[in-house]
């Protein structure tokens, strides 16, 4: 992919979920058998987003805003209902090897490590999956383990690790194959302050040293303030703000030092009232 092409480009990206609504009680359940009340909910509504290579962008929004659905479409988990979507020059929903070997995903609430074996065993599986040559595997593992300070826990079964240790090991696994694009979905959720700081510092170094594009979703505004040069705020599936943190504060008529939680809260309240 040419360097000047964006890492992510979407045009009118839309995702609609179909579901059946059931009225309460036994009568509602019986009625639902014969006349199901089928509904549609638009989770992402004509989203326009372009992310240049090497950028850290924060996708922000309240629960149910459509951030996770957007991320799921960007990494190929969900097929868009309509609109255009290109990530690293590929259509993610096709989930080809060339696409999947250039991205990585870290879910804060879902482990990518194999639970019953050690992190090192998981790394060996990824070495084969991504066809990583042995010398590169050894060097990358050593480098990532040192940066994330997990050298001493790589051989411990994952189920015996603390949450903070596990998240650092998740990052080693996610970055072993040197992805150009990392989706980090709430990577610091549940972590203590020391572990949070360690993850943040590492992501910033990753972006600075290797130019990895990072799409971050987080409810922790300290993560966003520390990492994101740009934020896209999504509400009801639509982008209600796209810019840097200073512009975000200006948009909410807040000062340069204003608390970002209050800024976001004001933005969502205004959007709800509009």
């Amino acid at each position: 992919m040419p360097r000047n092409e964006p890492a992510i480009h979407t045009e009118a990206l839309t995702k609609t979920y179909r579901y059946t609504e059931q009225q309460p009680g036994l009568a509602g359940a019986v009625k639902g058998l014969f006349r199901p009340d089928r509904r549609e909910r638009t989770a992402v509504d004509k989203l326009h987003l372009t992310v240049p290579r090497g950028q850290i962008i924060g996708l922000l929004g309240p629960n149910g805003a459509g951030k996770t659905t957007t991320i799921k479409m960007l990494c190929g988990l969900l097929r868009p209902t309509s609109g255009e979507l290109e990530v690293l020059g590929h259509r993610p929903a096709k989930r080809g090897y060339d696409f999947l070997s250039r991205i990585s995903v870290v879910f804060g609430q879902k482990s990518m490590l194999w639970w019953d074996v050690s992190t090192y065993d998981s790394l060996l599986i990824h070495r084969e999956m991504y066809a990583i040559p042995k010398p590169r595997f050894a060097n990358t593992t050593k480098d990532l383990a040192e940066r994330l300070q997990v050298q001493d826990i790589l051989n411990i079964p994952v189920r015996k690790l603390s949450l903070g240790q596990r998240m650092r090991c998740e990052l080693v696994l996610a970055l072993l194959h040197g992805p150009e694009l990392l989706f980090a979905d709430e990577p610091t959720v549940g972590l203590d302050v020391v572990a949070k700081l360690s993850v943040r510092t590492f992501l910033a170094e990753l972006n600075r040293d290797l130019g990895t594009t990072i799409v971050l979703t987080s409810h922790d505004m300290n993560d966003v303030a520390a990492l994101c040069e740009r934020v896209a705020v999504i509400n009801h599936g639509r982008t209600i703000f796209d810019g840097d943190l200073d512009a975000l504060r200006s948009r909410a008529d807040a000062g340069v030092d204003a608390d970002l939680d209050q800024v976001m809260s004001k933005l969502f309240t205004e959007a709800a009232d509009a």
Binding site: K72, G76, L77, L100, I103, V105, K110, S111, M112
Partner: peptide, 8 residues
């Protein structure tokens, strides 16, 4: 999901 985002 953890399988669908990997090349395997």
């Amino acid at each position: 999901s953890s399988w669908l985002v990997r090349p395997c």
